[in-house]
Every structure is written in structure tokens, then in C-alpha cells.
Design a protein around this nucleic acid. Structure first.
Length: 873
RNA sequence: GCGGACGUGGCGAAACUGGUAGACGCACGAGACUUAAAAUCUUGCGCCGCAAGGCUUACGGGUUCGAGUCCCGUCGUCCGCACCA
């Protein structure tokens, strides 16, 4: 008799209703069980979920369900990273208000996520654009401001003169605005900054303690923070035109040992001394302008030629008294070090390029160990390695390290213009975090500018500073700036007319503390510290590697800033981090070379491989490379289509199978079908067994067949447990396949036993129960359906994880491989506790071993208990 | 250029701290059931060879009784960073 096929669509909707109505996944804050916080990076509400989301949230859900079954009080929330530019772009293009566009997208995507059957506590949901959320963010900002963690200063930005807005570096393409196509200018604007650099050292050293983070991410953050130890050296300025107010200029160097190889000094175009000089030097002013037009994008910097402008000024070498020229150079960054450097062309690639171009001297002062200084040339390339100091007076003969120390000590003692000529300094590549955005759809920065009182924080009682709804997007620029009334406000200090700050915050601010807000989403204050401290840190955070630096570094900083202002009492927000791989898919191109969606392609297996054709016309389609799913290449698969045709469980299982979770996984329809076949097979096995198995009455000693079934089930259980614990989902799934194969053939072959052997029937029922439970984290709907079919009580979702019976994991007899000279020749089966001598004797008695030894006595026999025997001839 | 990771069947991959390489899945072949197809079931499947057997974890060395795993070198792929003084 055929069983009915499992109807995923019907069953999934039904169980989702049961879970929701039973509030199965709502997490109370006052549960005595140990806590476990699982979090997947919350999505941007772009419109529809994509397969990447399915993979990310499937992984998180497995962890959440597994930990819940293991007895933890699990927090597994979801929200929306809802501010940002796409909403404003949609407003400009489609005349939709950013707010309605965003909330409509959220509604759609919430429905899609719910159809996946995720064990989320939806009662904690929020969007960062909810006024209830960003009010608390403004509260945090005010606290940070009071704590000295916020500054306001001039900074260079990419300014699009047509759109009248600031652009991020990645929005500048070949020096032009990505939307307007206008030439982007470098402008100095007053911007708000969060002082992340205050924590540079802490953020760096604390990385060592994040032992459950991928090493790769920690390395990336280390490089980003970019700590370097060096020396600040001041040089006396000399020569005509030296400004009265600047008698010295300071440089930062990590190579003070090469000071005697100096041949020039270079200033940033933005250096104060440059500005003074440019004021009455039109040629220099023109050069500075040229530098500004170059742009700061990576591409621009990479291709830019090194250019300099000789100011005519000189600096005095502190040891030799020699005069060296002072250039303004386009490659010197104002916001690193002191905005000035001394050039040593012999031992620095960049200085070498510059000196070669301008004909400056190149004197080697470091030579490789054992090389004659006289015969050593750096004319073609600088020497960058360690070596011995030469041509450097009192440094000669020292190592690079010793020379650095010697120069530092000597210069610290020299007084120049009333202060030491040098000081040791640790420098960081990390800069303060500029959070000002000249946009509407973001969290308003809660300050007021008053003519008389200056910058005045908005009093907390006056929060929120809410975004006005009546805004127009018909013109470029920031709608907040030209709103008729919004910006006009009385100064909180003097009550005179004043104006609001119209900058809004970078959306990375929104995502820097949402994980804390989830612990008390309705609190009046940003957090309830005791509750936040009880839940945090997030035990397992899962998301894409693309956030390795910015989001994760900002969140680490924010947590420290929230600790400094009393909102939490911890410093690291994410105890465990996992970065999952992408979902990739084949690409297809039609006869006209245009990308074709997989939905429009039909396949045929031919003698020379797989061929593709357009479903509509039958025209041939070229199968291209496998790439990250993207709209532009049309190689996407819509999760909703998959869920409707195969069910959420199939999508979830397939996303977790085969590929290790940190690696890319290829979506193929054949794979999805295979997964669906497997789930149907499980359903058939469970329902047919439930039908054919007599109600089991506890039997006496289990038969050999019953023991075999129990062993298979408990071994699989132990393996799945360990694999999920290590986030090795593909391995967990493989073990489940194995168990299903074992149970399937046992069911087919041993049916006659059901009537005769009660212990076998009981064992089979137990094994099926274990199977359903270990599958439940991955395929929760099917698991509930099977659970019910087996006649078990309640929901699998509420059932504790089964306990492994350790006695079922050990075998009485072991089959060991026997090697002769390292090559496997036979197997030997021995009792588990056999001693080495017994095993050796048994191995040497094997026919294959005797044959391989060819009459010679073994020189040595190695017996590794429970593992292997190796006979050395 | 600098830094890091990784190279295992046709494909995705397993392999505990050095101990039977290729579990599990996909694709494919053969067979059963069927008028037929789908579904399902059985079975085969690293390479060479009729077989015995030999070879095999990118390539070349080394350590070891024993190496996918450790060490050295070469090649290749991927990722990150890149005027950072």
C-alpha cells in the first residue's frame, strides 16, 4: 500500500500556525535555565529575501533549535537594518516615501522569513527606522557626547556638486559621482566623529581573546587598526620664506635608523605649513588644488603618479646640520602621523620613486649583513630588509633595531626650540569614525546650533528628534536642510532662535548596538543594563565575511562606549563569530549575449554533456561560470519559488548539505530535487514503520538485531550532536543520511521480526524517534509531522534532545587493519580489550601477512591499540 | 608588492591529537517493477589492469614503522590590504 506523499506546503503552514499560536519561540527574560544568544546579522529590507539570507538564517536556526533542545533559554531575535540610501533612491525614482517603501519591504520580507519556519522570537522585532529605536540611539549619542566620545571637526569628503551630497568612497567611480556622473570634489566639511581611536589599543589587544572568531577576521581587524611604533621628530625650518609662526616641522617615522639617509622632507597638501605657504604662492596653491581634485578613492590613489612641489624651504638635519629641501607631495596623507615625513629613498619604495623623479640623492645607510658597503647599490630599488648600518656616524655597525633605539635616545635629549627634538609614539592607521551623512533617511544627530551658545545637545527630555514625514525628493541635496520648519528650533540654553543639525548618522551606527536592544526591546532607556548583561555577549553570531571589519569593529567599539556610559557592563559583544560562504549559481547567456535567468532555461543531457536552451524559443543557451547570485547576472533563484515548490525544509536542508558552511555552496535544481527525494523517503519510512510496527511493549534483553539498530541510532546521535556543536552542518547531515540508509534497509529486510521480536520493534521505534529529533533543527516542519505520525506527545520543538547511551557506542570486537611495511594487507578481528601480544599473534597468523612476509621473520610489529597493526619486514 | 587561506574521484566533499584515503550526497551506468513514463527499489562507480596486482590526496624532496595530515621547496587558486611614513 502506497503512503501519501508528504505535502510540504500544507504541513509547513499548519505547523507554523501551531508554533505561533503556542508562542513556542517566545523567550522570557526571567527563565532560570542557562542562556544562549544566537544572532544572525539582520537584513537590510531591500524588497525580497535572497538565497544568502536562507543560508544564513538556516544556520542560525539550527543552532537555536539545537541549543533549545539542549536545555538552554535561547534568545533568537530578528529585526531590520532599515535606514539607508536605497530608500531615498527609490523615493527619487518612484515617488514613494522612504518610510512606506521601507515598511512595505519589511512586511514582504517578514512574510518570507516566516514561511521558512524559523524559531524566532518575533515579539522582539524592531526596525532601526522605528522612532522608538532611533530615539534610544539619540540617547546613546548624547551620553557619548557627554563622555567625550564624540567630536566635531573638519574633514575631507567626496562632494558631488550636482547631487549636493557627500559620497562614500565606493560611490565614487573614476572620480565621478555614481549617480550624477559629476566630477567629485574634495571638500572640507565639518563632520561629527565618534572617537573610536581612543580604543585603538584596546580593540587591538582584545582580539587575542576572541578565540571563537575566525583567525582571518582577527587578522583583517589587526591590519585595519594598523599599529606601528615609531618616533616623532621635529626639524628646524630654515631658508627664505619660512613662516614666522612655524619654526619647526614634525614628522612621524618608523625608521629613525635611516635618518642619515634622508634627502628631503615632504608635507601633505593639507599640512598647516603648506597652507601658510600657499597663501602667498599661487603656484603652490594651484598644485594643492590639483591634489584635491585627484580624489581619495582607492583606484585614484593606486594609479596616481607621485608629484611634488619644491617649496624652496629647507630643514636642518639634527645630526649632520645638512640642509634638505622641503616638498609638498601628493602622496603624503594629512590624517596619518603628522602629515609630514622625511624621505629616505634608499630604504623606502615610495621615497625612491619620488627621489628618482626629482633627481634627489639616494644614499644607502643600511646594507645586508656581510655585504661590502662600497659595492652596494640602491640605484634601481630600495633595500628594505634588516641589515647593518653604514655611512651613519655614531650608528655605524649597529643593527636596524639598535639604531632605532640609539636615534630615539639621542634625539629625546636634544632640545629644539624649547622642547625635545623627538618623542616616541605609537601610531594607528585607524581613524575616528565619521558618522555625518547629509541625508534624510537616517537617525538625526540630536544637537542644535545656536549663534550665541554654539553647539548645544538636545536635552533628553526633548527626544526624540523625529524625522519629519513631509519631505520632497524632487531636488538633489538633503531634504532636512530645505524643510520649511523642521530645522528651526529654540536654543535649549538661551531660548533664542537656533537651528537643528541636519546631518543624520551613518547607518553603521544603527547596527552597532541592535544586538543589545534585542535584550529589552521595549525599555525606555537604550538598554536595561542588568538584562543586557545577563544575555550578552552573543554566544554565536553568524553573518557574511563582508562585515569582517566595519560592522564588527564598530560594534566592538560601541560596546566599549556603552560600557563607559553605563549601558552595558562588558566589552566584547560577540563571543563566537561564524562567517558563512556565499550562495553561487551557474550563469547563462542567450543567443544575443544577454544574461538569462535559470527559470527561463531548459536542460538536456546529450552524449557530449549537458546542454541548455531557452525554454520559450528553444534557442541554445551558453552555460557560463558559477558565480555569486546577483541580479545583474540574473543567476538568482527566488526563495519563495523554492519554498512553494519543494517546501522550506528542502531549501533549509539543501543550504546546509554538502558544502562546509564557511565555503560557497552552489544551488542546483538537481540538488534541491535530491534533497526533496530524501525528505520524502524519510516521511515514507516513518509513516510505513508507524503503520507496520506493533505498539511496543518493553521487552527483556534486546536481540542482536535490536542492539544493532540502537547502536546505529546512538552513534548517529552522538555524531550529529558533535557536528552541530562545531557548526559542521554538512557532516551532521551526512551522518543522518547514514542512519536513514541503515534504518531503511533494516525496515525492508527485517520486517518479519516485527511480530516475533518485541525488543526489535521497541528499538526501531526508539531509533525513529532519534532520527526525527536529530533532523528537527534542520527540517522542523517535517520533524513535527513525523513526530505526530509516530504517536509521540507534544511538539518536537519542545522536546529535550535525546541522551546518548555511551554503552551503545562501544563495540565488543574490533576489526583492525593490518599493514606490512605500511601497506594494508588484511584485517584482523579481535576482542576490544585484547592486549598487544594477542593482537600481534592474531595478525601474524593471517594468511595474507604470512604470504607478504615470504618466510622472513618480522623485524618489528607495531600495535596501536584499537587502531592498527603494522608489521615491519 | 605585502599578509593570509587553500589545492583529495566527473562534481560538492569526509577522514578524531600522524594510523584502513574517498564516508555522505550529486551526476552517471546496469538491473527490477511498469504497456510506457515518473516515482520507488537493487546494484555498480578514484585511476590502470582480463586478473593477480599496481598506482593515487597539485608537483618535487624530507622526517616516520606509518604522511591527505608534520617540515622544506616549486606551481596554482582564492581572499584581504595597499602611497600608512
Amino acid at each position: 500500500m502506497a503512503t501519501e506523499r508528504y505535502n510540504a506546503r500544507e504541513a509547513e503552514a499548519r505547523w507554523q500556525t501551531v508554533w505561533t499560536e503556542g508562542k513556542v519561540y517566545q523567550t522570557p527574560n526571567d527563565d532560570p535555565r542557562p542562556k544562549y544568544y544566537v544572532l544572525e546579522m539582520f537584513p537590510y529590507p531591500s524588497g525580497r529575501i535572497h538565497m544568502g539570507h536562507v543560508r544564513n538564517y538556516s544556520m542560525g536556526d539550527v543552532v537555536a533549535r539545537f541549543k533549545r533542545a539542549k536545555g538552554f533559554n535561547v534568545l533568537h531575535p530578528m529585526g531590520w537594518d532599515a535606514f539607508g540610501m536605497p530608500a531615498e533612491n527609490a523615493a527619487m525614482q518612484n515617488k514613494v516615501h522612504p518610510k512606506s517603501w521601507t515598511y512595505q519591504n519589511i512586511a514582504t520580507m517578514r512574510g518570507q522569513l516566516q514561511s521558512m519556519g524559523l524559531s524566532l522570537d518575533w515579539s522582539r522585532e524592531f526596525a532601526t527606522c522605528d522612532v522608538e529605536y532611533y530615539t534610544r540611539q539619540q540617547h546613546l549619542f548624547l551620553d557619548f557626547l557627554a563622555a567625550g566620545l564624540v567630536t566635531r571637526r573638519q574633514s575631507k569628503v567626496n562632494w558631488d556638486p550636482v547631487d549636493m551630497t557627500v559620497l562614500a568612497n565606493e560611490q565614487v567611480i573614476d572620480g565621478r559621482g555614481w549617480r550624477s556622473g559629476a566630477l567629485v570634489e574634495q571638500r572640507e566639511l565639518t563632520q561629527w566623529f565618534l572617537k573610536i581611536t581612543d580604543y585603538a589599543e584596546d580593540l587591538l589587544t582584545a582580539l587575542d581573546g576572541l578565540d571563537r572568531w575566525p583567525e582571518k577576521v582577527r587578522t583583517m581587524q589587526r591590519n585595519w587598526i594598523g599599529r606601528s611604533e615609531g618616533l616623532r621628530i621635529r626639524f628646524a625650518l630654515a631658508g627664505n620664506g619660512a613662516p614666522e609662526s612655524a619654526r619647526t616641522v614634525e614628522v612621524f617615522t618608523t625608521r629613525p635608523d635611516t635618518l642619515f639617509g634622508m634627502s628631503f622632507l615632504a608635507l601633505s597638501p593639507d599640512h598647516p605649513v603648506t597652507k601658510m605657504l600657499a597663501a602667498d604662492n599661487p603656484d603652490l596653491a594651484a598644485f594643492v588644488d590639483e591634489c584635491h581634485r585627484m580624489g581619495t578613492s582607492v583606484a585614484a590613489l593606486e594609479t596616481a603618479e607621485k608629484k611634488g612641489f619644491d617649496t624652496g624651504l629647507k630643514v636642518v638635519h639634527p645630526f649632520t646640520g645638512d640642509m634638505h629641501p622641503v616638498y609638498v607631495a601628493n602622496f603624503v596623507l594629512m590624517d596619518y602621523g603628522t602629515g609630514a615625513l622625511f624621505g629616505c629613498p634608499a630604504h623606502d619604495q615610495r621615497d625612491h620613486d619620488f627621489a628618482s623623479k626629482y633627481g634627489l640623492p639616494i644614499h644607502p645607510v643600511v646594507v645586508p649583513e656581510g655585504v661590502d658597503a662600497a659595492g652596494f647599490s640602491v640605484a634601481d630599488a630600495p633595500f628594505l630588509d634588516d641589515g647593518r648600518i653604514v655611512n651613519s656616524a655614531f650608528l655605524d655597525g649597529l643593527s636596524v633595531g639598535e639604531a632605532k633605539e640609539a636615534v630615539a635616545r639621542r634625539l629625546e635629549a636634544v632640545t629644539l626650540d624649547g622642547a625635545p627634538a623627538a618623542a616616541r609614539q605609537v601610531n594607528y592607521r585607524l581613524r575616528d569614525w565619521g558618522i555625518s551623512r547629509q541625508r534624510y533617511w537616517g537617525c538625526p544627530i540630536p544637537v542644535i546650533h545656536c549663534e550665541t551658545c554654539g553647539v548645544v545637545p538636545v536635552p533628553k527630555a526633548d527626544l526624540p528628534v523625529a524625522l519629519p514625514d513631509d519631505v520632497e525628493f524632487d531636488r538633489p541635496g538633503n531634504p532636512l536642510d530645505r524643510h520649511p520648519t523642521w530645522r528651526h528650533v529654540a536654543c535649549p540654553a538661551c531660548r533664542e532662535p537656533a537651528r537643528r543639525e541636519t546631518d543624520t548618522m551613518d547607518t553603521f551606527v544603527d547596527s552597532s548596538w541592535y544586538f543589545a536592544r534585542f535584550t529589552a526591546p521595549d525599555a525606555d532607556d537604550p538598554t536595561i543594563p542588568a538584562v543586557a548583561d545577563a544575555w550578552l555577549p552573543v554566544d554565536q553570531y553568524i553573518g557574511g565575511i563582508e562585515h569582517a571589519i566595519l560592522h564588527l569593529l564598530y560594534s566592538r567599539f560601541f560596546t566599549r562606549a556603552m560600557r563607559a556610559t553605563g549601558h552595558v557592563n562588558l566589552d566584547e559583544p560577540f563571543r563566537g563569530l561564524f562567517t558563512q560562504g556565499m550562495v553561487v549559481h551557474e550563469t547563462y547567456r542567450g543567443p544575443d549575449g544577454a544574461w538569462v535567468s535559470p527559470a527561463d532555461v531548459r536542460f538536456e543531457e546529450t552524449d557530449d554533456g549537458r546542454k541548455a536552451f531557452l525554454a520559450t524559443t528553444g534557442a541554445p543557451v551558453v552555460i557560463g561560470s558559477i558565480e555569486k547570485m546577483s541580479k545583474s547576472k540574473k543567476n538568482t533563484v527566488d526563495p519563495t519559488d523554492i519554498i512553494e515548490s519543494y517546501g522550506a525544509d528542502t531549501a533549509r536542508w539543501f543550504m546546509l548539505s554538502d558544502s562546509p558552511p564557511e565555503r560557497d555552496v552552489e544551488w542546483t535544481d538537481a540538488g534541491a530535487q535530491g534533497t526533496n527525494r530524501f525528505l520524502q523517503r524519510v516521511w515514507r519510512l516513518v509513516t510505513e514503520a508507524a503503520r507496520d510496527l506493533p505498539a511496543a511493549s518493553p521487552a527483556g534483553a534486546p536481540s542482536a538485531e535490536a542492539t544493532a539498530i540502537l547502536k546505529a541510532a546512538h552513534k548517529a546521535l552522538a555524531a550529529v550532536d558533535e557536528a552541530i556543536e562545531g557548526l559542521r552542518f554538512n557532516v551532521a547531515l551526512a551522518k543522518i543520511y547514514e542512519l536513514v540508509n541503515t534504518l531503511g534497509s533494516a525496515f525492508a529486510n527485517d520486517k518479519p521480526r516485527f511480530a516475533a521480536d518485541a525488543s526489535f520493534t521497541a528499538a526501531f521505534r526508539e531509533a525513529l524517534g532519534i532520527l526525527v529529533q536529530v533532523m528537527a533543527p534542520m527540517t522542523p516542519h517535517l520533524a513535527e509531522e513525523c513526530w505526530q505520525a509516530l504517536g509521540r506527545d507534544g511538539l518536537v520543538a519542545n522536546t529535550p534532545w535525546p541522551a546518548v547511551d555511551p554503552s551503545l557506542l562501544v563495540e565488543d570486537e574490533l576489526t583492525l587493519p593490518v599493514q606490512v611495511n605500511g601497506k594494508k594487507r588484511a584485517d584482523v578481528t579481535v576482542p576490544r580489550d585484547a592486549d598487544a601480544a594477542t593482537v600481534e599473534a592474531a595478525a601474524l597468523a593471517l594468511e595474507a601477512v604470512i604470504k607478504a612476509l615470504d618466510g622472513k621473520p618480522p623485524r618489528k610489529v607495531i600495535v596501536v591499540p584499537q587502531r592498527i597493526v603494522n608489521v615491519v619486514a
